[in-house]
Design a binder for these strands. Structure first.
Lengths: 317, 317
DNA sequence: CTGTTAGCGCTTTCAG
DNA sequence: CTGAAAGCGCTAACAG
C-alpha cells in the first residue's frame, strides 16, 4: 500500500505538503504540485479513505434502509440511488429492516456505527424511524409529516381515476394491499377525490379483497383499480378464472409500472414514478443536510405519469 | 462521541485496559472488566469502527457488485446476502457495474478504495472481473472456471426437461434471452442433455425468438422451455395473442421462480434456486478466503428445485 | 494483571 | 510557499 508518506520521502518534502498538493488545497507551488501529482500517478497512489475519514469525520458513505429488500421497487430505487450517489463520489451501505420497527431502528444504529454520514430510509409501513446521530432523509409519501421526498402518490391515484372516468366507467372497485401502508392510503384517497360524484366506488383490501373482486364485477362493477401491478396481476388471474375478459368486460389498472406491466397479457395500464428523479433529489437533499444546509425542495413530491396500455377500455353497454 | 479514553480516565485506568476488557481479550481481572463494561453501558459507548479498521486493516465490510441492479433476481440475492452478512457482523456496500466490463472494474476499484475486506461479484455476462487487492468470490455458474458458488443451472435445465419429457412431450422449443450469458447457456445445455433421443428440440434466442415461437407451435411443437420467468411471461402473451391456450395446447416453463410465477395465469412451472443457501455459502467462502483459508466447497454448485404448477400438462394427442 | 508507548494514514493548525 | 507537530480512536507489543 503506497501512502502519502512514501511520496513525501521519495520527493523529499513533508507529508503535509503532499496532502495539500493532492487535495488541491492551494498553498503549494504549481511546480511542486505537478511533481507530486506525477509521482503519485507513477506509484499508483490511492488515498486511504479510512484514515481520511477518521481525521475528517466524514466517510462519504450513505446508509440505505428499505423495509424489505424483496420489495419489487427496491432494485430500481437502489440502482438509481447508487448511480446518483456515485456521481457525487459517495458510497451506499445497505440495510434491511425486514419485519419490525425495532429491527428498523437496530439497522439504523448499525449503519451509524459503521460511520455513515447520512441515512436514506424508506420506512417500514406506519413507522417513523428514530435516529439523531446523523441526518436522515425519508422517502415515503406526502401525508407522512417527516417525508423528505417521494412521488405524488395521491396525484397518481387521481390520474388513474380520471382516466377511468374519462373513458366512461361509473361503477368501480378499488383494491389495496394493506391499509397500514400510508403510500397505498394516499393512492386510494387520490383516486377517490378525483372521481366525479356520479361514480360509485368501494374499497377492498388484501387477500379477502382479491377473492371478492369477481363477485363485485358480477354485481355490476366495470373497473378494478389496484394499488400495485402485482396486485393487478393477481386480480387478473381471478377474473380470468371467473371468465371475465380484460378489458372487454372489466378494465384493470396497476401502480408503479414494473417490468411485468408491459409484458403481461393484456399489457397493463398503470402509473409510473420517476424513480430516477426521486433518487437524485433524495441524495441532493441529504447531502445538503449533511453540509448543514436546508434544501428548498424538502418535503415536496414529484409528479407521477399515467401509462395507458391495453387493460383499460370503455365499458360495454 | 464517547471514546475509549473517556471511559479510561473516568475509571482511572489506561485506554489499553478498557480496550482489552471490552473486546474480551482476557488479560483483565473479572472485577475490572465488569466495572469497565458497566461504565461503558452507562455512557452509551459505541466503538468507532473507523479507528478500529484503520488499526487492524479490516473494515468488516464486503462489496457486492451486480451487473445490473435491475436484474429481477437482485433483490433476493441482495437480501439474502445482507442477512447472511449481518449474521456475521459484516456490512455490505453496493456497486452497479451497469454496462461495460470496464465499468465493472472501475466499481471494483472504488469499493476497494472504500476499504472493503472482500468482494462478492455476479459478473457482467461473459466477463471475468479483475482485482487482486482483496479476495473475490464469484457467483455465476459451473462452467465459469472462476466460479465460487452458484446454483446448478445445468441441473435445473435437466430437471425441467425431464419433467416435460415425462409427461409426454416429443417436440419442444427452447428459448433463451441472450447467448452471451453463461448462465443461460448452462441452463439450455442441461435441458438438451436430459432430453431423450426421441425428442425433437431447437433453440431460439432473444426478441426474434419470442416472435417466432407461435410459428413453431403451429408447426407442431407442444412445449416451450424458456430460461427465465419473465421470458415465459412474454411468450405467454404471444401465445395468447395467437390463440394457443396454455397448457392445453402448449406447455410453458420458466426459470428462477420469481414472484410473478405464482401469480400469473396459469401459474408457471419453473425451477427455483436456493438463493439463501447460495448467499450463505458465498459469504462463508469469502470470509474464509479473507482469513486466508481455503474452503472445501469452493466452486461447488447447489441443486435447483423443480416447481410444478399449472402451465405444463400432457400434450394433446 | 495493568500501563506505556507507538502507530495505522491522513489532515490541520501554527511556525518558519 | 513549506515543514513540524499533533491527533482522530483504537489496538498490539512490550514492560512493569
Amino acid at each position: 500500500m503506497v501512502s502519502i508518506k512514501k511520496i513525501a520521502t521519495d520527493i523529499g518534502v513533508s507529508a503535509a505538503t503532499v496532502s495539500n498538493a493532492l487535495t488541491g488545497k492551494g498553498r503549494v507551488s504549481e511546480e511542486m504540485t505537478a511533481r507530486i501529482r506525477s509521482r503519485a500517478q507513477e506509484l499508483g497512489y490511492r488515498p486511504n479513505n479510512l484514515a481520511r475519514a477518521l481525521k475528517t469525520g466524514q466517510t462519504g458513505i450513505l446508509g440505505l434502509v428499505m423495509p424489505d429488500l424483496t420489495n419489487p421497487l427496491f432494485p430500481r430505487i437502489a440502482q438509481m440511488l447508487s448511480i446518483a450517489a456515485e456521481r457525487r463520489g459517495l458510497g451506499i451501505l445497505i440495510g434491511d429492516s425486514r419485519g419490525s420497527a425495532d429491527e428498523q431502528n437496530e439497522v439504523l444504529k448499525r449503519l451509524v456505527d459503521r460511520g455513515v454520514d447520512g441515512l436514506l430510509v424508506v420506512p417500514q409501513k406506519g413507522t417513523s424511524p428514530e435516529m439523531n446521530a446523523v441526518p436522515l432523509a425519508i422517502i415515503n409519501t406526502a401525508s407522512d409529516p417527516r417525508n423528505t421526498v417521494s412521488a405524488d402518490h395521491a396525484g397518481g391515484g387521481a390520474l388513474i381515476a380520471r382516466h377511468i372516468s374519462d373513458i366512461g366507467h361509473r361503477n368501480v372497485v378499488i383494491l389495496g394491499g394493506d391499509p397500514v401502508s400510508e403510500v397505498q392510503q394516499d393512492r386510494i384517497s387520490g383516486m377517490q377525490s378525483a372521481m366525479r360524484q356520479e361514480i360509485r366506488s368501494s374499497v377492498l383490501w388484501g387477500d379477502a379483497g382479491v377473492a371478492e373482486v369477481a363477485e363485485r364485477v358480477r354485481a355490476g362493477a366495470t373497473a378494478v383499480l389496484t394499488t400495485s401491478d402485482l396486485l393487478a396481476l393477481r386480480v387478473h388471474s381471478e377474473l380470468t378464472r371467473a371468465q371475465f375478459s380484460v378489458p372487454r368486460r372489466v378494465s384493470l389498472t396497476g401502480f408503479d409500472n414494473m417490468s411485468l406491466a408491459s409484458v403481461m397479457h393484456p399489457t397493463l395500464t398503470t402509473v409510473a414514478q420517476d424513480v430516477e428523479a426521486i433518487a437524485d433529489r433524495a441524495i441532493e437533499i441529504l447531502t445538503a443536510m449533511i453540509r448543514g444546509q436546508a434544501h428548498p425542495d424538502t418535503g415536496r413530491t414529484l409528479p407521477m405519469r399515467l401509462v395507458v396500455r391495453n387493460s383499460t377500455s370503455n365499458p360495454e353497454i
